[in-house]
Design a protein around this nucleic acid. Structure first.
Length: 115
DNA sequence: AGCGTGACGCAGG
DNA sequence: ACCTGCGCCACGC
């Protein structure tokens, strides 16, 4: 599963995790946004972020649940069950989604420039 | 040194 | 608004 990526040796994934850790509670950021803040520019930057989060270790202090896709949805993962956890964690922070499982980005998207 | 794994975003229809 | 195809990089074995 290629997890536990660079637990000690920090590479690009650590960069992503650092950015995600900066997302305020009650806010969400898109993969694309995290990629940009992490300095990963490119058409597939968001994917690189997804890879980095996928490599995150369970029990990590990184608020990975605050990262969603541009549609305002939780990206479907390989392992079923975790997806629900993400929505649950967000709900605990006051981030709700509609019946379709979509989060209002206009309302919850992290505005790093306004803080 | 090479292959498989893995949480996306955009353009086009 | 929805669906489909394509591009992409880091890490473990």
């Amino acid at each position: 599963m290629t997890t536990r990526a660079a637990a000690a040796g920090e590479g690009r994934n650590a960069r992503v995790w650092a950015v995600v850790s900066c997302i305020p509670r009650g806010r969400v950021a898109t993969y694309r946004q995290v990629a940009q803040l992490a300095g990963i520019e490119g058409p597939s930057g968001a994917r690189q972020v997804g890879y980095a989060l996928a490599a995150l270790d369970a029990g990590s202090e990184v608020p990975w649940h605050r990262v969603i896709n541009v549609r305002g949805e939780v990206s479907p993962r390989a392992r079923a069950g975790r997806e629900n956890e993400q929505y649950e964690r967000l709900a605990l922070e006051g981030v709700d989604c509609d019946a379709r499982g979509r989060i209002d980005l206009a309302r919850y998207e992290w505005d790093y420039g306004g803080a």
